[in-house]
Nucleic acid binder design. Structure first.
Lengths: 217, 217
DNA sequence: GACACAATACTCCAATTGAGGTATTTTAGG
DNA sequence: CCTAAAATACCTCAATTGGAGTATTGTGTC
């Protein structure tokens, strides 16, 4: 299996290369100090010479996340494992979005890196435990709480109900019919809604309701 | 470290118990055939006797995902590792949502299970490689493509611009002023929008625009 | 340069909406 | 039981909106 390594620290990349090439089914076919050097190299490669797996550092002039995105878009068969010291949520998230299939901290022992390379071509992903925990937390976080917290809803139950119908594009006569109340009553509710929300038309009110997730899905 | 095991297969749970209790910092303090039995046990426990970690199977009368949710809500200090044969996306996702911090397939060797138990109290998570791959794919999937694909946008650039202002609650006179065009022209655009979208009021039009993500964020 | 389409602008009419009231009946809590 | 809030209902007037036209001026493409 052909593996390339990208890391701006010379000692580190040579060290990793030596450690993993001791395994007989792994062959290091390229060691680069920057993402751009890797990209240049890949462009010159015959497809049969392309690496199967790339171990990618992040902090480089042409950074590893950007490089990962380019590699995955141009060479879909190459799998990428991030090998870095970064463990903040955003870096992890961006790396995965860019297409990384594994994420290891540099502190991992050689056997783990080697297992990651082998597993990745088998459809598996190896992730350092502390990184895995952060990814799990990310998945467990409800969609809406990732965004800003909604404002408190000052409306009554009936008002929310009517605002929901407004948001769906219903007119006042349609709402009256649907709720079995008079047209004038609907209008009164609507005006009360406007006053509470400090708006003066139904589209603004609908926007507030949607933005704040006041309406049931 | 105190570990409990929940699995409806007697052979399996005894087997796991024997394998992990060979490690001297792990002590099996409860083995249950169903989630409900575990919950009953936890209720009777003094807090100092509660397990630190639970290995949880999924397929049981009181299923493991439900049980996980209850345990995490009542006993926040207990960490839960799923130990199961299920590897479908939805089961994994639901387990994580319920609060599982680790996810292992039953095929994993004893050392991996033991390492998972030790790591979890250290702030790490161990996930079987094939499961990890699926979680990574999940995180990498763009938010919107998890939902239905948006319809093709039949509107012109100017129409989209105006629909955007409508969606923000602007009136036609306000839009006219903002775009330096006449009020009557705005109304013409708006009517063209309605015709193309087959709607007859601005709130419906705004809803379509938002639902289909036609507007820039 | 011809042609389609987008963008601009206007008129007229009817329906809906927004803003200001008042008033009665339910509902929920103390 | 009493009271406050919510829900109901109605009136009036002005502004905005929606629907139906017509017409002129870019703009880009073949």
């Amino acid at each position: 299996m052909k593996v390339s390594i990208v890391d701006d620290n010379e000692l580190m990349r040579e060290n990793i290369a030596k450690r993993i090439s001791a395994t007989n089914d792994i062959q290091v076919v390229g060691v680069f100090a920057d993402g751009q050097y890797l990209l240049d190299y890949l462009e010159t490669c015959n497809s049969e010479d392309l690496p199967d797996v790339i171990l990618m550092d992040i902090e480089m002039p042409t950074n590893g996340i950007y490089t990962t995105g380019i590699v995955k878009s141009k060479f879909t068969s190459i799998d990428i494992i991030m090998l870095t010291v970064f463990d903040d949520d955003n870096t992890i998230y961006e790396a995965i979005k860019a297409g990384a299939l594994g994420y290891l901290l540099k502190e991992e022992p050689s056997e783990t890196i080697i297992k990651a390379i082998q597993d990745i071509k088998n459809g598996g992903s190896i992730i350092s435990p502390s990184i895995a925990r952060k990814i799990i937390r990310f998945v467990a976080t409800p969609e809406q709480s990732k965004k800003s917290k909604p404002a408190e809803n000052p409306l009554t139950k009936r008002e929310v109900e009517i605002l929901g119908l407004i948001s769906n594009g219903h007119t006042n006569p349609q709402i009256a019919e649907k709720l079995f109340i008079s047209y004038e009553t609907v209008r009164k509710h609507v005006r009360n809604i406007y006053e509470k929300l400090q708006v003066s038309n139904r589209t603004s009110a609908a926007k507030r309701a949607i933005d704040n997730r006041w309406l049931p899905e």
